[in-house]
Design a protein around this nucleic acid. Structure first.
Lengths: 119, 119
DNA sequence: ATAATATATCAGTATCTACTGATATGTTGA
DNA sequence: TCAACATATCAGTAGATACTGATATATTAT
């Protein structure tokens, strides 16, 4: 076989989930749950900078979570599959269940001083 | 109210998804889909270092995706909720749908030389 | 053709985070 | 108590990535 870089399914899954794992991208996805939007509309809906949105959209499209449709000089982005919506919904549900735990998730998002020795 | 750091739901969601967004953690979760395992068993099942596994487990537990149960000097980890399993399953389905796109996801995982201007 | 608008890319930076190797803590049995 | 085992934490590092501000490209209208 000789494939030096075997593509494991966990790697693919990780990339997929990475699409969901950033607040800015989630804002974008959330906005798109109501239907297709242009980049400018997404910028307005999310309050992110244009270049930032554009980068995230690129990522989301590369990862297959959104697809595009050009209409003149506008490009409409929309969720690529109903499962994206279902995944977001399921995450909401799970979050409601474990909200407290996640809220306290301390490991990777504290200021440097308090990274170690959590209490 | 005076909360300087308003906790937006996208932030919580992002943390939740971040639990799923790393290949090592996905390996761990995958292993746990078949039932509870001790840390040592997880180390063996995943081929990761012990400290690495321990760190990831800590993260997963903080984020509410797994829970623990001590039995003597062993600590059994298991998925916290059936929805975790369902989320993984849904991701599998979605992945099958957009596999090609994700496989090509170039933005954030190429060697430095080729990060910009993807041919 | 040119201005105006929409979107994408660039280069640079600060932060985040996965990992390692070493060490510490906790638990059990001899 | 002490050795053996199970697990957690530490400190440090390399690489990943979200963001900004500037610039480039594309499309339309005048």
């Amino acid at each position: 076989m000789l494939m030096t870089t075997k593509v494991r399914s966990v790697d693919l899954q990780a990339k997929l989930f990475r699409g969901f794992s950033d607040p800015s991208r989630l804002s974008i996805l959330e906005a798109l749950r109501n239907g297709p939007l242009t980049v400018t509309e997404i910028v307005q809906a999310t309050d992110l900078s244009q270049s930032n949105v554009s980068n995230h959209l690129c990522c989301l499209r590369d990862c297959g979570l959104v697809t595009t449709e050009q209409d003149g000089r506008f490009i409409y982005y929309h969720l690529s599959d109903p499962r994206v919506d279902r995944l977001l919904h399921l995450a909401d549900e799970l979050l409601a269940e474990v909200a407290k735990g996640v809220y306290q998730c301390a490991r990777y998002n504290l200021p440097k001083e308090s990274r170690h020795g959590r209490n």
